[in-house]
């Protein structure tokens, strides 16, 4: 029997078709945009809602390669740098805290009893709802923004990594004890290396949330950053800046995801194989 190329359960698209299929949604989206933008612009050349590609390119050129008249900075790059710094701090703090807490929670029943309900409770708090509290108590500086990212990502990371620790078979722990391990050695030499690939995957998952909290915080109280810029230029409907900024954020997110996946593959080849 011959496998169909595209339709049905038994379909096996050839390689070239796979590539084309992958590109198709993008092509459709872009053409739809171009068409709609063209219609609106012929109707009214000063329309701002769906700017043409060339006006977006001009805008990109302005923010990325020309000094800002007021500050003398290259806006896109300074915005990117300050946003990424916040994101990096927030997510790294969350990652290391979650790693330590979930290791101890997963291995020590006492600590599990102490913290598991609390962590679940914290994870139910909607982070954006406590944003005002953060700004009031920590001021409008960097700390509040980093704290929001931390609070938004840390509980989910903890719960996910905790599950990974729990999946380590008890036999491994018993075996390590018979090989003369101390409990610290079990945590850092047996368990930690085994859950790291899973923990990095958890980071990939919460990174989307991290961006959300970053942009929310920047939109409300900030003087630079990608989120700040988007909400600033929104006031004069500068879609020619907003759209490239959104695409840039998306691209950054995609790259981080890709890099973390590659990192996992390079550092933990045994784990990638195991999951297949």
């Amino acid at each position: 029997m011959k496998h169909p190329m595209f339709l049905g359960l038994h379909a096996k698209p050839p390689k070239l078709l796979k590539r084309l299929l992958m590109l198709l949604p993008f092509i459709i989206l872009i053409s739809m945009y171009l068409y709609a933008s063209h219609l609106r612009l012929t109707d009214n050349p000063h329309d701002k809602l769906l700017p043409s590609i060339s006006s977006m390119l001009q805008a990109i050129n302005r923010v990325a390669f020309e000094e800002d008249r007021r500050t003398g900075e290259f806006l896109l790059w300074t915005d990117t740098l300050s946003s990424l710094t916040r994101l990096l701090y927030g997510v790294s703090f969350a990652f290391f805290t979650a790693l330590i807490i979930s290791l101890y929670m997963g291995l020590y029943r006492g600590i599990e009893s102490l913290l598991s309900a609390f962590v679940i409770f914290i994870s139910m708090v909607p982070p954006l709802a406590i944003l005002p509290i953060l700004f009031i108590s920590l001021g409008v500086g960097e700390i509040a923004k980093i704290a929001l990212i931390f609070i938004g990502t840390f509980p989910i990371l903890t719960r996910d990594i905790f599950l990974a620790v729990k999946q380590i078979p008890q036999q491994q722990i018993v075996k390590s004890l018979t090989l003369g391990a101390s409990s610290a050695a079990i945590i850092y030499r047996i368990i930690l290396p085994q859950i790291l690939p899973r923990a990095i995957n958890s980071v990939r998952l919460v990174l989307g949330g991290g961006w959300l909290f970053l942009i929310a915080a920047e939109a409300i109280a900030s003087t630079d950053g990608l989120g700040y810029r988007i909400f600033l230029v929104r006031r004069y409907l500068a879609m020619d800046i907003i759209i490239p900024y959104v695409l840039w954020i998306t691209l950054l997110g995609f790259c981080f995801d890709f890099l973390l996946r590659k990192l996992n593959f390079l550092l933990f080849p045994w784990s990638e194989e195991k999951n297949q």
Binding site: P169, Q171, Q172, K175, I190, Q194, F268, W270, S271, K274
Partner: peptide, 8 residues
């Protein structure tokens, strides 16, 4: 019988 080695 199972999990006799450390996979990493």
């Amino acid at each position: 019988q199972k999990y006799s080695l450390f996979p990493h």
